[in-house]
Amino acid sequence: MINFGYTLPSDRQIVYDKNNRETATFLRSKEPTFNSCIQCGTCTATCSAACFTDFNFRKLLLLVNRGETFEIIQELQKCMLCGKCLLVCPRNVNTRNILLNLRLYYAF
């Protein structure tokens, strides 16, 4: 290959058609409130882990829903399972059960 001094960068678009949404399907079967999230961010605002890491539970749910699960395992390790998010969610999303099931799904 010729070195042109630049590369072909990959597309930043979320290509929904090609994404694998198995995790979302699994979660929905285990915890139906997974789908009720309205992305208000109360969970992340109150999150113990979010104060010190880039853990963002709101975004985690969103990305799982979109099938963007490439870096999910590192994310799951950041949660301290303190339960504050469960306390504040206005839609009664069972955040704790979702996280525990995600850990189960990725088997650690």
């Binding site: 001094g5 630049y6 590369t7 072909l8 960068p9 990959s10 597309d11």
Partner: peptide
């Protein structure tokens, strides 16, 4: 800018 040229390329590629 040569280093940015891949960005141009990616548009045509798309």
């Amino acid at each position: 800018v040569q280093a940015n040229r891949g960005y141009s390329l990616a548009c045509s590629y798309k």
